[in-house]
């Protein structure tokens, strides 16, 4: 392992991520990993990396890096107006960098997360088979935390490699309006008929409380049937919980493993990557989708993305 770059400005929240710790929920350990796994995989695909090779996840405002070695890099996800030595580095394009080169990311106008991948990937602390950072428990990444100025990034392999350009048709098109499909969930029946209708027709706004754990949605207040408190039961990224205050909470990649609030919807697996690009103030519609249709969508979308996400959406 060799030092490949140094963080000169950390950005708002920059962490090392991979595809997460699948299969660890029975230990109380969340999935973590890239909040937008599709953009993450696109950055890796441009470098001919395996889809789960560790890359940097930048949030809303990106970091600045000084490279200390020769490498091939690629950016994907939200456009943060990246500049390499003062010249624009477009999203989804690869670039060769050398010792002394400066990569400066700005602020995302649309979308929330940009991924910086390097050929061969970055190295980090491994826990349960993943280097993804879960800062709440100080797991993975670099000392389990968000990056700070002065951090040195290590490469995990050969840092220069062949590049390719994934079909532009596969790039997510990010605006401030999101459209997610969702199935019902075990406690959907606790919503009043009026609230159920509202949930699947309202234009929701992402509140300021939006992070890797989940996003609180603002809109009509939902009312639930009065039932005895439920015993804690499993929840997952994409689960929408409805706490007693009536404001739905959409869980994301760092979601806790069990919860005690009614589960009123589950975002379909094929749309879940979009949650990682939603930011405070963005709007979102949820459309009710039958399970069979959701499986069909996942199968068709996975076929289109076979080169990018060979594992599909069910992990």
């Amino acid at each position: 392992m060799s030092v490949i770059a140094k963080i000169t400005k950390p950005g708002l929240m920059t962490t090392l991520q991979d595809m997460g710790r699948a299969g660890s929920r029975h230990l109380g350990v969340p999935l973590s990993g890239a909040a937008d796994p599709l953009s993450f995989a696109l950055a890796n695909a441009a470098l001919c990396n395996e889809p789960s090779v560790p890359a940097l996840e930048c949030t809303l405002q990106g970091p600045s890096l000084r490279f200390l070695a020769t490498a091939t890099i690629a950016l994907a996800g939200a456009d943060m107006n990246a500049q390499l030595n003062g010249a624009a580095l477009p999203i989804n394009e690869t670039a060769r960098v050398k010792d002394g080169d400066e990569l400066v990311l700005g602020t995302a106008k649309t979308g929330a997360r940009c991924y910086i991948a390097v050929a061969g990937g970055f190295a980090g602390d491994t826990f349960l088979g993943s280097v993804s950072t879960y800062a709440q428990a100080a797991l993975g990444g670099i000392e389990g935390r968000t990056l700070k100025a002065g951090d040195r990034l290590l490469s995990a392999g050969e840092t220069t490699g062949s590049a390719r350009t994934p079909s532009a048709a596969l790039y997510p098109w990010l605006t401030h309006e999101f459209f997610l499909r969702a199935t019902t969930a075990p406690e959907t029946g606790q919503l009043s008929p009026e609230s159920l209708k509202q949930f699947f027709s309202a234009r929701w706004t992402v509140s300021r409380r939006a992070d890797r754990m989940g996003l609180k949605l603002e809109g009509p207040s939902l009312s639930l049937a009065r039932t005895p408190p439920m015993a804690s039961s499993p929840v997952f990224p994409g689960t929408v919980q409805c706490p007693p205050d009536g404001a739905p909470f959409l869980l994301s990649c760092d979601a806790q493993t069990v919860g005690g609030y009614p589960r009123i919807a589950q975002v379909i697996a094929a749309d879940l990557h979009l949650v990682g690009q939603m930011r405070p103030g963005d709007h979102l519609w949820l459309r009710q989708t039958e399970e069979a249709e959701a499986r069909d969508i996942a199968q068709k979308k996975a076929a289109l993305l076979a080169d990018i996400l060979p594992g599909g959406f069910f992990r």
Partner: peptide, 9 residues
């Protein structure tokens, strides 16, 4: 892909 226990589920 995963199987997780709650308190009574």
């Amino acid at each position: 892909t995963d199987c997780v226990a709650g308190i009574d589920s």
